[in-house]
C-alpha cells in the first residue's frame, strides 16, 4: 500500500476518518485496509476505475451497505466527527441524519415536492410540534439553497417525480438540508444528467461546501478537477493516493495514479 505523503489533515480536523477498513461481500473482498481522512467543510472527490470500491467505501460511511444483511462484513473503524459509526450501539437513524446521501440516479420519493423536502425532518423530529409556518420556512430555505425555489415555488404540492432530472437531483440534496447533516455523501450524482445540469450541480457543490463536508464519487476526472479540493484515488479496493486535487492531477506520486489520469485504465 502506498504511503500517503501529502498534507495529511490532523485527525481532529477530519469530518470523516476511515481507518484500516476492509469489507467483504460474502467471500469477496471489496476493500483492503483503506485509510482516508476527509477534511471538515471541504469537497473531496473519490476517483478510480469501475469496480474499485468507491461506492462500497462511500456506502460504509452511512452504513447503507447493511441493507444487504449479514452478507456484508466490515472491519476497521470509521469515525464521523470523532464518533465511531461502526460501533454496535450506534443508532442508524441518528447516523443517517448526520450523514446524508445523494445517489447516482435521482430518487425523489413518490410524494409531493413539499413532502420530499420535509421527509427527513418529519422523521427526525420525534413528536416535537412544528407549525406549518416553520415547515414552510424550512422548505423555502432548503429549496433556495439548492437554487430550486424559483422553479418549483408554484407547484410545491405537485409530484416530485414530474420534475426534470436536474431538478430531481437538486431536490434530493435539498431534502437533506432541513436536518442539518454534517456530511453529504454523493455517489456519481451527475451521471444521469446532461452537461448543463452537471455544471449547475457542480456549482451548487461550491455553494454548499464549508457548511457541509462533501465526499463525492465520480467517474469523471474533469469533474474531480473542477469540483473538488482534494482527491483520493482508489484501485482494486485499495486507497492509492490522496492529495489536494491540483497536485494529484499535476504531479501524481504513484505510478498507478499517473496511469489512471492519463486514461490507461478503462
Amino acid at each position: 500500500m502506498a504511503e500517503q505523503k501529502a498534507p495529511q489533515p490532523r485527525p481532529e480536523d477530519s469530518a470523516i476518518s476511515v481507518n484500516m477498513v476492509s469489507l467483504w461481500y460474502g467471500s469477496f473482498r471489496a476493500l483492503f485496509d483503506v485509510n482516508l481522512e476527509v477534511k471538515a467543510g471541504s469537497i473531496t472527490a473519490l476517483i478510480g476505475p469501475s469496480g474499485c470500491g468507491k461506492s462500497t467505501l462511500l456506502r460504509s460511511v452511512n452504513r447503507i451497505n447493511e441493507r444487504l444483511g449479514s452478507y456484508v462484513r466490515t472491519t476497521g473503524s470509521i469515525r464521523v466527527h470523532g464518533h465511531d459509526v461502526l460501533a454496535d450501539d450506534v443508532e442508524l437513524a441518528q447516523l443517517r441524519r448526520q450523514v446524508g446521501m445523494v445517489f447516482q440516479r435521482p430518487n425523489p420519493l413518490p410524494l409531493s415536492i413539499r413532502d420530499n423536502v420535509l421527509f427527513a425532518h418529519r422523521i427526525h423530529r420525534a413528536g416535537e410540534r412544528v407549525t406549518r409556518i416553520e415547515e414552510d420556512e424550512l422548505l423555502e430555505t432548503a429549496l433556495r439553497q439548492v437554487l430550486l425555489w424559483d422553479e418549483v415555488k408554484d407547484r410545491l404540492n405537485g409530484p416530485a417525480t414530474g420534475l426534470s432530472l436536474e431538478a430531481q437531483q437538486k431536490l434530493c440534496i435539498a431534502r437533506l438540508l432541513p436536518v442539518k447533516p454534517k456530511v453529504i455523501l454523493m455517489d456519481e450524482p451527475t451521471s444521469a444528467l446532461d452537461p448543463e445540469a452537471t455544471d449547475a450541480l457542480e456549482g451548487l457543490l461550491w455553494e454548499l461546501k464549508g457548511e457541509y463536508t462533501i465526499l463525492i464519487v465520480t467517474h469523471n476526472m474533469a469533474q474531480a478537477r473542477r469540483a473538488s479540493e482534494e482527491t483520493a484515488f482508489m484501485l482494486l479496493g485499495k486507497m492509492v493516493e490522496h492529495r489536494p486535487t491540483q497536485e494529484l492531477f499535476l504531479t501524481p506520486h504513484e505510478q498507478e495514479t499517473a496511469d489512471y489520469i492519463e486514461g490507461r485504465y478503462g
Binding site: 447503507i64 442508524l92 437513524a93 441524519r97 420519493l109 421527509f119 427526525h124 436536518v179
Partner: peptide, 13 residues
C-alpha cells in the same frame, strides 16, 4: 427499491 433506499438513507426505520 430505490424509494426504500432513499428513505432509509435519510434515517427512516
Amino acid at each position: 427499491d430505490s424509494y426504500r433506499e432513499a428513505a432509509e438513507a435519510m434515517g427512516a426505520t
